[in-house]
C-alpha cells in the first residue's frame, strides 16, 4: 500500500515534468489557430508553415553555423585543457580553471551583455565572431568535464606501458590516449552542440536581426503572434534533441559523461 502511494506520487511528478512537452506536441498537430483542447484533429499545416517561414529558415541556418563552429572550437580547446589539467600542475592553474569553469555560474544575460559590449569595443557587434565566441565559452565546461572524466578513467599505467614499449609522447597521445577518450569527446561535443543550438538568453544579447539563432527567432515570433507555428518548431527541436541524447546515451554512455551514477 505504501509502495503504491509512493509510485503514484512519482508518476504524478513525472507527469508534471512532461506535461508541457505533451501539450506542445499536441498543439503542433492541432489544425485550428486557437490553442484549444482537446485537439480537433491532426494536421501538419503548422509544420509546413514553420519550415517555410523565412525568419526561421535564416535563423536555423545561422544556428547551425554558430553551433558547428562553437561546439567544435569548444571541443578542441576544452579537450586540450582537460588533458592539461589532468596531467600538469602549474602556477595559475587554479585561476585559469576558475575562469574557464565560471560560465556554469555566471548568469547568461551577464555573459551575453559582456560579449555585446566587447563586440561593440571591437566593432564586431551582432557578428558571427562574437556569437561563436559567446557560445563556445558557454558550452566549453561541458566538453572539458566530459573529456576530463574519460581521462580520469584511463589507467595511468597505460601511458607508461606505451612509453616503455617505445612510444614517444606524441605517439602515446595519438595511439593510446586519444582512442580511449574519443567516446568522452563525442559525448561532450554532442552535449555542447545541443546546448548551443538551444541557447537563448546570451544569444538574445549578441545576435542581430540578420544573425539571430533559432531560439531568438522563436522568441521574436512569440511576442508578435499567437499561433502554433512555434509549437511545430518546438516539437521538431524536442524530437531532435531527444533523439540525439538517446543515441548519445546508447553509444557512449551519457550517464557517465554527465556523472550521473546510480549504481
Amino acid at each position: 500500500m505504501r509502495s503504491f502511494a509512493f509510485w503514484s506520487l512519482v508518476v504524478a511528478l513525472l507527469t508534471y515534468m512532461t506535461l508541457p512537452t505533451i501539450v506542445v506536441l499536441m498543439t503542433s498537430v492541432n489544425p485550428t489557430e486557437i490553442l484549444a483542447f482537446p485537439p480537433q484533429g491532426v494536421s501538419f499545416d503548422w509544420y509546413a508553415k514553420a519550415v517555410s517561414y523565412p525568419d526561421f529558415q535564416l535563423a536555423f541556418k545561422n544556428g547551425l553555423i554558430v553551433t558547428a563552429c562553437a561546439s567544435t572550437l569548444a571541443l578542441i580547446v576544452g579537450s586540450a585543457f582537460a588533458w592539461l589539467i589532468h596531467h600538469y600542475e602549474f602556477r595559475g592553474r587554479g585561476l585559469l580553471e576558475g575562469v574557464l569553469w565560471s560560465p556554469l555560474i555566471i548568469p547568461h544575460f551577464t555573459l551575453g551583455f559582456g560579449f555585446l559590449l566587447l563586440g561593440g569595443a571591437f566593432r564586431l557587434q551582432q557578428g558571427y565572431v562574437m556569437i561563436v565566441l559567446a557560445h563556445m565559452v558557454l558550452v566549453m565546461p561541458f566538453v572539458t568535464r566530459a573529456v576530463h572524466v574519460s581521462l580520469a578513467n584511463i589507467d595511468p599505467a597505460l601511458a607508461r606501458a606505451a612509453a616503455n614499449l617505445g612510444a614517444s609522447p606524441w605517439q602515446v597521445l595519438t595511439r593510446i590516449t586519444l582512442p580511449l577518450v574519443v567516446p568522452g569527446m563525442a559525448g561532450g561535443w554532442l552535449i555542447a552542440a545541443v546546448l548551443s543550438l538551444t541557447e537563448f538568453t546570451a544569444s538574445l544579447y549578441v545576435t542581430g536581426s540578420r544573425t539571430q539563432t533559432l531560439p531568438v527567432a522563436m522568441y521574436n515570433y512569440i511576442r508578435e503572434y499567437a499561433d502554433p507555428t512555434v509549437s511545430a518548431i518546438s516539437a521538431l527541436l524536442i524530437i531532435a534533441t531527444t533523439l540525439i541524447m538517446l543515441v548519445a546515451d546508447r553509444t557512449i554512455g551519457l550517464r557517465r559523461v554527465l556523472a550521473i551514477d546510480t549504481h
Binding site: D155, A157, L158, R160, A161, A162, I176, L180
Partner: peptide, 8 residues
C-alpha cells in the same frame, strides 16, 4: 605492470 596495463 602490476595492472598489466593492456591497451583496452
Amino acid at each position: 605492470f602490476q595492472s598489466y596495463a593492456l591497451f583496452p
